[in-house]
């Protein structure tokens, strides 16, 4: 009974972790950007979804849709205002681009965080659920919303896989992640590939933000923790590896759930952090990462 409970509970939270970290790994894979404003993009989507969703005329579905749109807009703004100028800047030496992108997105995330806190206050809110009620799975009372979250997460993962592996645009993304110079030589505009990548990133982050907000609640105060969790999962799985990210999300999700059930809820985060340190020490490229 307890085992089943842990399996079901861990599955949903892990799926959500995977989806939350997916965009982060995608954008790193394609353009080498570690977007430290990631948590801010998630929370912006969730906040907009909540704000529109609580408006009686709109409803939950319209709320979710506007949340995703907000995610895409925030993503493009991040790219256009912060990332692209740094990548284009002649004043920044090549070797230091990475640090400038990190600092720039960090600052941008701070701006979004304070701005959201100012508009919506830092008190957490919950995004309206698309479905309510509970379902009994082999004696475990499970909220229907939790099942829906797992299903949507996996659908999104599957769609992304299809997009990357089965469409020409997706293949260009893949190629850009492996050898950007070769792609330019073939006459493909890298700019367009990047725009596509940030567009997909915005959609994924938007969906993840809305789902996170409906399951765990949302607040501008959660932004640093969300960025941190996504960062950890992605590094654990291997930077840029989508499969690695999913595996890492499940490892972290289940370790946390096991700890919460079997040891103590107050120690929930600790074992996963220690595991992360160990993995980084003994296998720095992560579970499935390329060196």
């Amino acid at each position: 009974m307890l085992i089943l409970q842990i399996l079901i509970d861990g599955f949903a939270i892990s799926a959500l972790y995977a989806l939350g970290a997916l965009g982060f790994t995608l954008i790193f894979g394609v353009s080498g950007v570690l977007n430290l404003a990631h948590g801010a993009v998630l929370v912006t989507s969730a906040m907009v979804a909540w704000y529109v969703g609580t408006n009686e005329a709109a409803g939950a579905l319209a709320g979710a849709a506007s949340g995703i749109v907000a995610g895409v807009i925030t993503s493009f703004v991040t790219y256009a205002v912060v990332v692209r100028p740094i990548q284009r800047s002649k004043a920044i030496p090549e070797v230091e681009r990475e640090l400038f992108v990190l600092t720039g997105t960090l600052l941008w995330g701070v701006m979004l965080q304070i701005g959201l806190g100012y508009i919506f206050t830092t008190t957490p809110v919950t995004v309206h659920q698309l479905v309510s009620g509970t379902v009994n799975i082999l004696g475990v009372r499970t909220p229907t919303n939790e099942i829906l979250i797992a299903v949507i997460s996996w659908l999104t993962l599957g769609l992304l896989w299809l997009l990357v592996n089965r469409t020409p645009a997706g293949k260009r993304l893949l190629a850009a992640s492996i050898n950007p110079r070769g792609l330019t030589l073939m006459g493909v505009e890298l700019d367009q590939v990047h725009l596509l990548a940030w567009g997909i990133y915005g959609v994924i982050a938007g969906i993840a933000g809305v789902l996170l907000g409906s399951f765990l609640g949302t607040s501008s105060a959660y932004i640093p923790a969300l960025t941190g969790t996504a960062f950890s999962i992605v590094v654990l799985g291997g930077l840029g590896s989508v499969t690695g990210t999913v595996i890492a999300a499940y490892v972290v999700g289940y370790i946390e759930t096991l700890t919460a059930y079997l040891i103590s809820p107050s120690l929930r985060a600790v074992p996963a952090l220690i595991l992360l340190v160990l993995v980084l020490y003994f296998r720095p490229q992560g579970i499935l990462g390329r060196r």
Binding site: L102, G228, V235, A269, V270, L273, L280, P284, Q285
Partner: peptide, 13 residues
């Protein structure tokens, strides 16, 4: 980034 993350985790721990 790998080292960066270790330092971040150190703070969290």
């Amino acid at each position: 980034p790998y080292f960066g993350l270790i330092t971040l985790v150190a703070v969290l721990l």
